[in-house]
Amino acid sequence: MRSEKKKKRTWLRVTGIIILLLVIGIGGYAFSVYRSLTNAVDTMHQPIDRKSDKRTEEVSLQNKQPFSVLLLGVDQRKGDKGRSDTMIVLTINPKLNSVKMLSIPRDTRTEIVGKGTMDKINHAYAFGNEEMSMNTVEHFLDIPIDYYIKVNMEGFKDIVDAVGGITVNNDLDFSQGGYHFPKGEVTLDGKKALAYTRMRKQDPSGDFGRQHRQREIIQGVLREGASLSSLTKYQSIFAALGNNVRTNLTFDQMMNIQKNYKSAAGSVEQMTIKGSGSKINGIYYYIVDDAEKQRLHDELTAQLDVK
């Protein structure tokens, strides 16, 4: 009996020493990660001079207020400013532990705020960068858009490679960019992921199918980036983010989001916009009627807890 107790105490001491060493090691490792992260965020940070007409006071992330982010995927190739072919509005409510993800079809016809013309919503970026994109989406949905995150889709392959590749569940057999994507579980490196997101013409769902694949890629990157195996790749991950992502979120704001909104990430609801395709003066547009806009507005204002 004494021998068993002695063994238990010995194992407790050994376990305690191992845990202590791990904590010390992780502490030094965490500092290295923290330093790399702050450097990446400094590079990513791109403030803009803009005030939302839908917010009387700036949203407080410290006080856990619901907020919105416009995610812009810009197909920006060499010598070309590009257009925001991916436009996703994320609304996060920590009280409801809820995230709503709304993809806006790039051909959606709306007023380009600041330009004074009716055009495809993705043209707003080409006309006036992030500010005009935020103002136009804010007007289209009649909700406040608080922050933006812009991802260079051409460089997105670097981010996928940095996390070690991703796995998606493909629901359509197709070929694109010299690669074949069979139905079922598919593992993608950066180049394959880029080709996977760019396919549109072969998809019976058109742009909606493309949006679905884009969301899969984004969620795959987030999933792999949050995994323990990615801890050893943090330097390449942060370097890829620094090179290809721009946002008006500061480091402190990101830390507040990580601290106060983490539980909301467990429940992500994907929303869709109902509309119809139509040609106006020979140009294809996606038309969203007033009733559908009102439905989206009501759901998103409830999520953001604004009137």
Results as ranks from 00 to 15, higher is better:
Q258Y: 13
A240R: 03
Q219L: 14
Q211V: 04
D207A: 08
N260G: 15
G209D: 10
R223K: 15
S276R: 15
A239Q: 14
S229A: 09
Q235H: 12
R223P: 00
R215Y: 01
N260F: 14
G209V: 07
I273Y: 03
G275E: 04
G277R: 10
N256G: 03
M271R: 08
G277E: 11
E224N: 01
Q219R: 11
Q211H: 11
Q258R: 15
G275V: 00
N243S: 12
N248P: 01
N260W: 15
K262N: 10
A240Y: 02
E216H: 06
A239C: 01
I273R: 01
Q219T: 10
A265W: 13
G225Q: 02
I237N: 09
G206S: 10
T250W: 12
Q235P: 14
K259H: 07
G220K: 09
P204T: 09
N243R: 12
M255L: 15
L241E: 05
A239W: 01
Q214Y: 03
V245A: 07
G266D: 09
S263M: 07
G225H: 06
G206R: 11
L249A: 05
Q235C: 02
R223I: 00
S236T: 09
H212D: 13
F251R: 14
D252E: 14
M255P: 06
G225W: 04
S263C: 01
N244A: 09
D207K: 11
N243H: 11
L241F: 13
I257C: 04
S230F: 03
S205F: 01
Q235K: 15
I237K: 10
Y234H: 12
T247G: 07
N248L: 09
Q270D: 14
E269H: 08
S229V: 03
G277Y: 13
G209N: 09
G275L: 04
H212R: 08
L241S: 08
R213G: 03
S230K: 00
G225K: 04
D252G: 07
Q253E: 15
S236V: 03
Y234L: 03
D207V: 05
S227F: 04
R223V: 01
S205G: 00
F251A: 10
N243E: 15
G220Q: 08
N243L: 05
R223W: 01
M255C: 05
V268Y: 06
D203Y: 07
M271D: 11
S263T: 11
A226P: 00
N248F: 10
L222D: 02
L222M: 14
T272I: 07
Q211P: 02
T232C: 00
Q258L: 14
I237Q: 07
T250L: 13
T232G: 02
Y261L: 12
V221N: 05
V221H: 06
P204C: 04
G277N: 15
L241I: 15
